[in-house]
Amino acid sequence: MQRYPMTPQGHAALEAELKQLKTIERPRITAAIADAREHGDLKENAEYHAAREQQGFCEARIRDIEAKLSAAQVIDPSTLPKEGRVVFGVTVVIENMDTEEETRYQIVGDDEADFKVGKISVNSPIARGLIGKSEGDEARIETPKGVVEYEVMEVIYD
């Protein structure tokens, strides 16, 4: 069985989304289907077909979330031994050795990743290149623009 690593915040967000889908979206879509059926011929009823399509997306997302939650491996970075190594859940500050630009990332599960707010997936090339490194270590990471060298400046266990 595949395990899905996630932070406690990511787990809570998935549970909240599941509750939203089951208690609000599913009943709304069911009502829309019932309302569209009252309009007559279903073969030419665009509202009915749109509602059925929404229902399919909603049910697929519910199944996906339930599967991930059942196989979730919740990792709280604040409970990890503070060894200064990059592991799942930590926030890491890295410096591009060519440009001397510092960047801050938190390494999270796939569903939590949001590059715009500095959360990268544990399966991303950057995270894979940083896992296991310690403060002061250098990491060579393959990117679409070529190999980039980073230095791990700080590891933060929030």
Rank of each mutant, 00 (worst) to 15 (best):
E59W: 07
R85Y: 02
K43Y: 08
T91I: 06
E53W: 04
Y48H: 04
E25N: 15
E38T: 06
V92Y: 01
T91S: 07
A31Y: 08
P81D: 08
T30D: 09
E95H: 10
G89K: 05
I29T: 06
R52E: 13
R85K: 11
Q55N: 13
F57T: 13
V117G: 03
Q73A: 05
V108I: 14
V108Q: 02
H49T: 13
T79Q: 07
I75L: 12
T79C: 02
M97R: 15
V117D: 04
D76M: 01
R85T: 09
E25I: 15
I107P: 00
D35F: 00
I33P: 01
K116F: 12
G40N: 06
R37F: 06
Q73S: 08
V93P: 01
A36S: 07
R63I: 06
A31H: 12
R37Y: 07
A60Y: 01
Q54K: 15
K82M: 09
E66C: 05
R28N: 15
V92F: 02
G56P: 03
D114Y: 13
V108F: 14
R28Y: 07
T79P: 05
L69H: 13
N96G: 03
D111A: 09
I33F: 04
A72S: 15
Q55K: 15
S78T: 09
C58W: 02
K82Y: 03
A46F: 08
N96H: 02
E100D: 07
E100N: 13
Q73E: 06
D76F: 04
P27M: 10
L42E: 12
A71R: 12
I33E: 00
D114C: 03
A34G: 00
A67W: 10
I29G: 00
Q54G: 03
D35W: 00
D64E: 14
A31F: 10
D98N: 11
E112M: 10
A50R: 00
K82C: 07
Q73G: 01
E53G: 08
S78Q: 05
V74N: 11
P77S: 07
R104V: 14
M97W: 03
C58S: 11
V74C: 10
P77W: 03
N96E: 05
R85F: 03
G109E: 06
D41W: 05
E44I: 08
